[in-house]
Amino acid sequence: MPEPVLDIRKLDAHYRDFQALYGVNITVEAGEVVAIIGANGAGKTTLMRSISGLIRNRAEQITYRGQQIGALRADQIAGLGIALVPEGRQLFQSLSVEENLIIGGRTGRKGAWSLQRVYDLFPVLQERRNVPSTSLSGGQQQMVAIGRALMANPDLVMFDEISLGLAPVIIRQIYESLPTIVGEGMSAMIVEQDITKALSVSSRVYCLQEGRVSLEGRTADVSREQISAAYFGT
């Protein structure tokens, strides 16, 4: 069996002053879409921040393509091919739409994604390429955030709450684009509070509850009841 893209072992992570994750084990195989679900404060965002290096841990706790990356800085990890679409988009306000995308590609990794390809995926961005990113609608901003992550041609892309605060029609549009995005061997991790959405695109699911993995399994195998038990801890 090929080694997993991402292998998290016994991760204890701290957010500010308190411990947010306790002995978390998660693996992501090549080309796989994994959903991470859980209530507010379950530790999902801390998990994303740990993987991307914004929170630094012990080296052996996170292994990526056989390399221990737990203690690396965020910019080093980005160069290895892990990208994050952060919660709340967080575009660079003083950069134009196109500059936001270009800076996403500054790691210089080779791959299928280019400025033109992002514009093909989200044509509206090409029309508005030179406007400040702040003048876009929420949905368009989310497209820039996704495009910015893809420009890095990552092997693993993480989506943190991409449907939060967006209109249902926009959410549907973005989720419809996900298969195109991850269809080319890229692995993905999707964090959502909207369980149905997350399950609809993923092959496996982990549920976090109070910093611990309370459920893991193939999306097809887990029942609604199991999920709600793992989610709410009933």
């Binding site: 991307s52 290096g53 914004l54 800085r73 965020a74 910019d75 080093q76 980005a78 160069g79 990208a83 994050l84 952060p86 967080q90 660079f92 306000q93 003083s94 950069l95 500059e99 270009i102 800076i103 996403g104 500054r106 790691t107 910015r148 890095a152």
Partner: peptide, 20 residues
């Protein structure tokens, strides 16, 4: 661009591979 990105948001700039 790197200056402006880091000025806007240091964390996210790091995610772009910029060492602040």
């Amino acid at each position: 661009r790197a200056f402006r990105a880091v000025s806007d948001n240091q964390d996210i700039a790091q995610l772009m591979g910029l060492n602040r």
